[in-house]
Amino acid sequence: MPEAREVLVISGKGGTGKTSLTAAFAHLAGDAVVCDLDVDAPDLHLLLAPRPWRTEDFYSGHEAVIDPAACSGCGTCAQMCRYDAVVVQDDVFRVEPLACEGCKVCVEFCPEGAIAFPERHCGRWYLSQSRFGPMVHAQLFAGAENSGRLVTLLRQQARQLAQEQGRELILCDGTPGIGCPVISSLSGVDLAVVVTEPTPSGRHDLERVVELCRHFRVPAAVMVNKFDLSQEHTRGIEHFCAAQGLELVARLPFDPVVVEAMVAGRTVTEQAPHSALAQEVVRAWGRICELARLRRAA
């Protein structure tokens, strides 16, 4: 059994339609392992209705906690902390959990040994059965560090599921931006599908995320969503893709059916299968599968 291919949908800029498109691809693929890597603000479950059959707590790193009874108030921790995480209130030293990086420097250098260093409970992850097959997803707790460790863990779980169930495709919904979680989701994928929109922000963020794909040597293809919003910016994106040797796999028209489908908890390909939008999504999905296969063969 060959290893499953992995397709990741990302965008740089948020709100370009990643999740709606990933859900439609999950519907069209039918037998993929679907993975929501946006562990910070996940939305894919709203369309795929997963029922968890396994729930796990996620721990990552540690946090410093000062025992006020053992603290002598010498201030070493506050001097050494690079993150200004130690605050003093009415002569009581306390570590602000949101600012604590979990570096252990204060724990190491406290002359009284007054600082504990418990593991940090950061969120939960789930293995589920969704409307379209197995799904791996998670929810970080508010304010937790999105270090990419949870993203890496979810991808390992998805690969294991694919292996066990003999599934050939892993379909991942990515997170906005270009930092830790995006970098963790990119390494070693067969194809990154970058969803953009014809606006100054869409264009700007597309360029950065394409540069990131190049940096990590991940092949990328581009989809322009709501292309009819600005012919001028769409042309600009087309030129950019041509100059970069990137295939533009779809130009999707603006269609209120995307929101109607979302409200109904369905994918656009279920909600309006005969719309111009859904048909372009079907065509694009065919091409994405070809590209991901070609890439693996090469």
């Binding site: 948020g14 910070d40 603000a41 949101l98 970080l140 508010a142 304010g143 937790a144 999105n146 997170t175």
Partner: peptide
């Protein structure tokens, strides 16, 4: 601020 509710977003609104 950046999107989301993890540590960068909270650092931005502090």
């Amino acid at each position: 601020a950046p999107p989301g509710v993890s540590c960068p977003a909270l650092a931005a609104v502090a």
